[in-house]
């Protein structure tokens, strides 16, 4: 979610990137939750969610390094 601040388009008011992740947080969480609990292959579910998390962390890390 936090990475959204960096990659989401800012939109006309320059706030979409900040607001949308906060607004959609419950939905993001719910999708991940149901995916994780219904996934047939647990290992793949771990991998998918793990990759999403790592991608976000890399984005945030890069954002701080490049400044």
């Amino acid at each position: 979610m936090a990475g959204g601040a960096i990659w989401l388009p800012k939109g006309a008011a320059q706030i979409n990137n900040l607001l949308l992740p906060v607004l959609l947080f419950p939905a993001i969480w719910a999708v991940l939750f149901f995916y994780a609990s219904l996934a047939l292959r647990l290992r793949r579910a771990y991998a998918v969610i793990g990759i999403i998390c790592v991608l976000q962390l890399v984005l945030i890390g890069g954002h701080f390094m490049l400044r």
């Binding site: 979610m1 936090a2 990475g3 601040a5 960096i6 990137n17 900040l18 992740p21 906060v22 607004l23 947080f25 419950p26 939905a27 945030i60 954002h63």
Partner: peptide, 21 residues
């Protein structure tokens, strides 16, 4: 949905966004 948004926005969402951006 709206209720959990209100709970999380100020206690979690905004602090996290502030940290990143």
């Amino acid at each position: 949905f709206t209720g959990s948004f209100f709970s999380f926005a100020s206690s979690f969402g905004v602090p996290v966004m502030a940290m990143v951006a």
